[in-house]
Design a protein around this nucleic acid. Structure first.
Lengths: 212, 212
DNA sequence: TAGATTGTTAATCGATTAACAATC
DNA sequence: TAGATTGTTAATCGATTAACAATC
């Protein structure tokens, strides 16, 4: 039901808008404007108005934007208001850290189960999330339709596991393995979002190294 | 000694080039070309040549690029060849996971010490990395000049800790706190590279939600 | 009302792609 | 040599910024 294709640049700014709106909201402000928000975020007022206008008309001339309303609009645009079930695959240090620290709920995600191949972990719970046998992943998914999967297992299993997930109907894969995962289009456009720690560190390395 | 300013878009592609070159190298290939690399990475040959030409002339007409040479060139461009000392601040689950799993060495980073405020953790070691009292951070830094810091502590301490780090001469901050950190220019252009997990998940949420 | 600020159209800027002469 | 492929210049495309009429 969307009109024009939204550019990637715009999409990647949305969570940042949301973060700043959330902060302004916590500060108790009722209204803001494209110029105020822009000053705060280091963007031009023009860009903010242009970005938001991709999704609708959320402001009011002479007044600006109602913080609460714009905040909620952004949550809807990002589909955060809609509950999404997820599983996590690979309960190593990083998987454990995500289960324990990360606020999945803030993004509308309900982490339902974790999977691991290590018998010592299977059957345990982490913060109330059961750790199940990785061998039962696809049978679990067939019984519990799940839209999201968090990939935190060793890189060598990334591709194969991603394919299993895609076959079982997962729509989005949040990939922390550091390996690229490519899913053929027969899997109906499953989206892979990768968090490449090393890419980020290497960019930092570049930036500090060229400051001389 | 660099000529023109390199655009951010180019810089963020460099680690990805490196990753693919590393894979091609592992596969035992001796040469590649902008079109072969482009096909593999989903980029145009033109873009690859354009990107690389920002940094020098690494290819040869009629032949293409020597994989090993280009790989090493990219490592130099990113300053990965140059040893960089780092500290990690905040030894919670995520900090622990990074110390234990992340291959800092692959990016030329030597993690020298970790800091935490929890007395139960102070004095322990994680994979050979000593956990020191967070209260001694600045005195440590004055004795051990350190260019990089990994921020993995609770968000409410992010800004203040970043300022301390900047005052103590740290040049780059790798920020995992989920909070934005802003350093005034009086800190001589300390670079902050943030890994915002929630931004990434929210983009994924947007993308799967708009596939209907 | 007058001032402020929107959404949108037009202008500018920057990044990507195409074309091609140079040459291995 | 002929074919392949570079580095670079020019053309295109897309994203950002500026301008402004509409209006709260």
């Amino acid at each position: 039901m969307k009109k024009a294709k939204i550019s990637n640049a715009v999409i990647r700014r949305l969570p940042r808008y949301l973060r700043h709106l959330a902060a302004i909201r916590r500060e108790g402000e009722e209204r803001t404007s494209s110029s105020a928000l822009g000053a705060r975020m280091g963007l031009t007022a023009s860009q903010i108005r242009q970005d938001l206008s991709c999704f609708g008309e959320f402001g009011q001339q002479g007044y600006g934007y109602n913080v609460e309303k714009l905040y909620q609009e952004l949550r809807e645009i990002l589909n955060l208001h809609q509950e999404k079930d997820a599983v996590l695959v690979g309960v190593g240090n990083l998987g454990h850290a995500l289960i324990h620290n990360f606020k999945f709920r803030d993004s509308g995600v309900r982490l339902c189960a974790a999977f691991d191949a290590d018998p010592a972990r299977i059957g345990t719970q982490i913060d109330g999330i059961p750790v199940l046998d990785a061998g039962t992943l696809s049978s679990y998914l067939s019984q519990h339709p799940t839209v999201l999967a968090v990939l935190t297992l060793p890189g060598r299993y990334a591709q194969q596991t991603a394919e299993t997930l895609a076959e079982c109907g997962v729509r989005g894969i949040w990939n922390f393995t550091g390996f690229d995962v490519t899913l053929p289009p027969e899997h109906g456009g499953v989206v892979v979002e990768s968090v490449h720690f090393s890419d980020s560190l290497q960019v930092l390395s570049y930036l500090i190294g060229n400051k001389d």
